[in-house]
Amino acid sequence: MMSWLFTGMLVLSLLFGILNGRMEQVSISAVNECSNAVTLAIQLAGVMCLWSGLMRIAEVSDLTGKLSRLFRPVMKLLFWHLPADSKAAKAIIMNLTANLLGLGNAATPLGIAAMKELEKISPRKGIASNEMALLVVLNTASLQLIPTTTAALRLAAGSAAPMEILPAVWLASSMSILSGILAAKFFSRLFGKGAD
């Protein structure tokens, strides 16, 4: 699926670059953006190390165990087949907690840690398990309770009430998350045991 997406975007950019007479910009982006990706990865490496380190402390001190007992009902509902005290389940809970608190920078490393744990217990190597897919879907939707960046930009643009969007954001994101979960549960059957 990602291969199709990758190819599709590249072919479309060539096609539209020619049609719109923007080939110069397209070729500049090709050169610049791959270096930008490296810069981004280096920036990400800092938070990645910070949160991987903190995660290790939380594991050894059993803080993650405490959190996972708190979230057990939610986990039972979403990740049916995952043992509640597995390393993967604990990592998922840390990831979801970081998302709720709006710690987007922390959520990514914690989520990646959870993906690696899920991969270890996945029976079919190289193929996403239902749990992996669901975790990614939860992270592509926004679980953040208070969209601080958006509110800050609204304030900067002169909004009289930057936070007034909150109820609407909650409604939209909860419907979005709910449909993502349902879609993941439903589509998992359509995509069988490894058809791409």
Binding site: A128, M132, A133, A184, F187, L190, F191
Partner: peptide, 12 residues
Amino acid sequence: KVQKTRHTLPSA
């Protein structure tokens, strides 16, 4: 090492 992401993209 996952190559086949299955239903991830359509669900997201």
